[in-house]
Every structure is written in C-alpha cells, then in structure tokens.
Design a protein around this nucleic acid. Sequence first.
DNA 1: TAATTAATCACCCTATTGGGGTGATTTTTT
DNA 2: AAAAAATCACCCCAATAGGGTGATTAATTA
Lengths: 208, 208
Amino acid sequence: MGRNIKVSIIEDDETLRDGYAFLIGATEGYDVISTYCSYDEASKKIAIDKPDVILLDIELPGVNGIDAIPKLKKLLPNCYILILTVYESEKQIFNALAAGASGYLTKNTPSTKIIESIKEVREGGGPMSINIARLVIRSFQKNQESPLSKRETQILELIGEGKSRGQIANELFIDLETVRSHIKNIYLKLDVNSRADAIKLARQNKLI
Amino acid sequence: MGRNIKVSIIEDDETLRDGYAFLIGATEGYDVISTYCSYDEASKKIAIDKPDVILLDIELPGVNGIDAIPKLKKLLPNCYILILTVYESEKQIFNALAAGASGYLTKNTPSTKIIESIKEVREGGGPMSINIARLVIRSFQKNQESPLSKRETQILELIGEGKSRGQIANELFIDLETVRSHIKNIYLKLDVNSRADAIKLARQNKLI
DNA sequence: TAATTAATCACCCTATTGGGGTGATTTTTT
DNA sequence: AAAAAATCACCCCAATAGGGTGATTAATTA
C-alpha cells in the first residue's frame, strides 16, 4: 500500500514530457518509470514497465492517443489511463472516455492537480478538469423546453430502445392505435416522418 | 463581478442545514440568503430571493429533490443547482443531472470542497465528488471485450438509431442482404431475436 | 368559463420491414 | 492451414411502419 505509484508518460513534446517527468518524479510517493514520445515507441517496452498509471497525450505522431487507449489497455489491463491534452472537443473527450480513459485533464491544469489526479485515478476516481466536467455534466442534461408531452416523450424513448408499436402498447397498457396516434403527433411536432429521424432529432436536442 | 455569491439551501435536516448555512455564510464572498426544509416551503419565496446557487438535498419531505429540480429551474432559470446528498445510486445521480443539476456532491465532502464547488458551478463548471466522477466516467466507457465484430457493432449502433435495414445498407454502401446477414449474426452472438432485445443487451453491456 | 392540449381509441390503405431458413464467396486475421 | 469477418443470394410470410381522417374524454391553461 505504501508502494510508490509507477507512472509512464507518453507525450511527443520533449519539453512538456521532461517537465511532467521531473515534476512527478520529484514528488513523494510517485515514480516516473518511463517516458515515450509515441505509442509506437511505448508499445515495445511498456508491458515490461508495468506502470500503474499512464499519462497520455492525444496529439501524437503515428497512432493517435485515442486509438492508443484500447491497445494500451490490452497490453496492461490493470493500468489506468489519464489523458493530458489541449484538445477539448466534445467528440475527442467522449471518444477517449469510451475507449477506456479513466480521467481527462487539459494542459492548463495546475501541477498540483495533475499529481492529485494520478493518485485519484489509481484509487478508482475519475479526475477531470473543470471545463471537461462541465461538458460531461451537460451531456446528461435534458432539454427542459421540449415540445413533446410526457406521454410522447415516454413513447419516443421506447422507440429509441428499438421497440415496435406492439411492444410499446403492451408495455404501457394502451391500445396499438393509441401508440400510433402518439407517434403521429410526435412526427408532426418534430417535423419528421420516420423513427430514425425522430430519434436523431430528439437526441440532438436532448428531448430523450 | 466582486459581488458575493447568493446561496439558498434546501435541506430537511436542521443540524446540517444550519451547519452549511453557518459555514458558507462565514466565508468571504458568499451570502446565504435563505434556507428551507422542503421544496414546498421554498417554492413560495425562493423566486424573490433570487439565489445564484441552490444547495439541494435529494431526500426531502413532500416533493423530492429530483422532482424539485425542474420546478426550481422554472422559477429561477439562471440559477445553478448543486446536489448535496448521501444518495449515490447511479439512477439517482443520472436523473438529477438529466433534470438539470449542475453538480453533485455527497455529504462526506469536505467543507472546503463544498465552498469551492459553489464558486465552480457558478463559473460554469460541473463539480462532482470523486465517487460521482468515477460513476460518470464509467458510464461513458465501452466494453473492450465485445463478442461483436467492428462491422456488427457499427450496424448495431445504426439499429440503435432506429434505422431500417435499407437505411443501413445505403449508409454503409453494402447490399441489403449483407445487412440482414450481419443482423442475423448479431442475434446469434447475443442470443436474442429482436432489435429491441439486441439494443437492450448491447446497452446494458456497453457494447454500443 | 372557454379554449387548448393531452391522451385515448377506430378503421381506411399499401409498400416495406423484420425475422427465420439455408446457403456461398472472398478477404482478413489468427 | 484454419477460423473469423464481410460480402451477397433467394426462399417464406406475418407484422410493421407510415399516411389519411376521424372521435371522445380528461386535463390544463388562458
């Protein structure tokens, strides 16, 4: 338990890489056991290093950081990956998290927060920069001004689960014709004429 | 800009309520302008208080915290709601965030973190307790050991968007029969026999 | 109170879809 | 060399989806 946390860094910018390495290595309880400038470099040796946590950049030469995540996870299933990048686009963030990153920090993060996040991630936490947390929280928030009624929203949710009219009717204890009627109204309100378009629009606008 | 942050507290436990109020009120830059023991109490006067941030408990008498969120948002559209609760169930958390909460803290949170989170939420951040952040991040992570191939996963994603075989075929520039064939294999692998069941199972296991 | 919206059900229609069978061929990966 | 992935083909038929055009009965809001 008192063992030092073993950290590897994958970052192509030499100055940053050395900076992080020095910073973390100088901190009590942390060892920087290796640094790499690309995934291709890292892949050859990192399985032997066996780091507890990898600090990973997104913009890398060769295999980019996001594609590197599942590969690293395969090499080191018990290793936590902490993204450290300037990229703040929603897609990048969600892709990185979906791929298996356990935390996401932007490069303006103060060094104390980086150090703390490495510990946090190893303890099962999910450290994020403030701006990332904002995006993540927003991704959960539904639109409060939906044109759809409660029932319509409910039915659109079931459509989003791939259910047929019949299945929806059974689940809600209403007639099949009533379901049809609701769906027609949904289509009218959203100005679409297919399930796929309704789902797309509803998800885009966070109606469901 | 230098104006103090106006905070309201809705919390049924008197000891906690007074504790928070004292704590926050004593801090430079913060004013506790009102405290309530339920939503029903708060609803009568809180629109006049016009707080910047509401600290909200989940387990409340009468209207519970989660149902109170949209109502409060309607009364005070520009107010941020910060959940402060012992509840840590995934559903509660995601429901609260979906309803419009901007942050979620558990009650073991140190007081400095609470104070900091109030400021953070007003600056557009999304403060979370460490354990909450863990759940939130995990909710994004996909299963790395899917039984499905890339193409199958892709097709199942499109099915999850409500698309028909024909639409999928057009989108992927493959034959309708090929789509059918993939879907059959998906059903075989997942041991289901309908779109709805496939989507359900895939989402449960984070295959898509 | 009057008007609107929500929720329920009914019956018309037809092209498309969905799911089940049972194959085969060609790449790609292992 | 063997296995898995990706592609396409043709059999079947009940169910579905979407469009039209209604009506009745709560609720909610003006």
